[in-house]
Design a protein around this nucleic acid. Structure first.
Lengths: 219, 219
DNA sequence: CTATCATTCCAATACTCTTTGGAATGATAG
DNA sequence: CTATCATTCCAAAGAGTATTGGAATGATAG
């Protein structure tokens, strides 16, 4: 029994998972896939890279068994193998956020108005949304809403928000969410809503964070 | 607001955590530190590397805020910053184990006898240990036992096991555990015990796995 | 067949990481 | 002061990674 050699082999295998999540590009792809399955084209577009580069990174993710593919028509769709991968993303982000001051600094420059952040707990939010005391809107693209969304949330993509403002009752507070803490869409939505007289706040969580906490989702 | 640049920065910060856990050596150090704090010398010895190399890797871990140091006398002791780091290690290993067939293959070559693995649930194990129906032994070095161990376990380091065999009652089953699934000490202990007529089984978990499941520990 | 979507191959550049060596520097105990 | 423990600096070899380019190949829909 060659102890050293075997141990090295074991750690090396685990390190493969680490290697895969050591690239900012791949992390961005993982975050996008947390929103639901997407084609290579969509992924490349959303993450600002060429299709070829996205393809290369997705190949790595697939080799590590973090994502899987399915062909439908002309497109090949990628999705996370299971929610454990989303949990890994949430955990890494949480660890990074707790430890790396640089990240916190970067995040606060994004969120110029800390007051727009939602002060309310998750379960309380759900209750208020169910009763209709507040309106929860999902400002991601419609297909991501279709794949998975928070209970009692309605889809109102950022791109359509301006011309569909009238759909929102002006007398109730609005809570907007998007892909998670790194996503800027909810942020912009809140800015727009506030400018038009709404009481709007941002929910930092996305569906991945929501699920990682064991909270329910709707599809 | 330069969206792209900011996003890149955010993902880059998270990728730093990934980078740190993309090295087999550093993972081994993390696993060792899951057992309790250790000096550089100890770590280097346990992980079969030179002090200088260990020092370099520990520097990386420290830069990522996964470990912290404390000087006591001539030695500098390293420890995990909090149990979230141990959880990350457990999570990565679990993901790797679920996904990478190579890892499973390597593990089964280690465990030539699958029957030696404990078939019993964690809570049930605790109960039996508390009642004294079984003897749970911690075969890690004594200082790791001192730092943290399973409830109702007694310390019986592998190095001393042979000459302290008489301390174990021959009429009750023995369950041995060590640093976790990647550690071979419990394995060897079970082999030795079985050879001497004991009914011995191996518990795959170590203290990190135990804690990650929310189960209690003793110190 | 043609257009589209995705991957692959070969190649090149630039970059980063790992590991080792030798030598030097700090910090501490006794 | 001396021995021990740990880190640091400079340097270098070697391996691996990321990204881009051009061109080609598969797979599918219509």
């Amino acid at each position: 029994m060659n102890t050293r050699a075997t141990k090295d082999l074991l750690y090396q295998q685990v390190a493969r998972i680490g290697k895969v999540v050591s690239s900012p590009r791949r992390l961005e792809l993982i975050e996008l896939l947390c929103q639901g399955e997407k084609s290579v084209e969509q992924l490349a577009g959303d993450a600002n890279m060429t299709v070829k580069l996205a393809s290369a990174h997705l190949k790595e993710l697939k080799a590590a068994r973090l994502v899987e593919t399915q062909r439908r028509g002309k497109h090949i769709y990628y999705r996370l193998v299971d929610s454990g991968v989303a949990d890994l993303w949430v955990m890494l982000r949480r660890l990074a956020g707790h430890r790396l001051l640089e990240l916190q600094a970067a995040l606060t420059t994004l969120t110029k108005r800390p007051d727009e952040l939602l002060p309310v707990g998750s379960r309380q939010l759900l209750q208020q949304a169910r009763r209709g005391d507040i309106i929860v809107i999902d400002v991601r693209p419609a297909d991501e809403y279709a794949a998975n969304h928070l209970p009692h949330a309605r889809s109102l993509p950022l791109a359509e928000l301006k011309r569909r403002l009238h759909e929102l009752p002006a007398d109730r507070p609005v809570v907007a969410y998007c892909r998670g803490p790194f996503c800027l869409m909810a942020h912009q939505a809140v800015a727009l809503l506030t400018k038009h007289g709404y009481r709007a706040q941002r929910l930092e969580d996305g569906v991945a964070e929501w699920r990682a906490r064991g909270l329910p989702l709707a599809a």
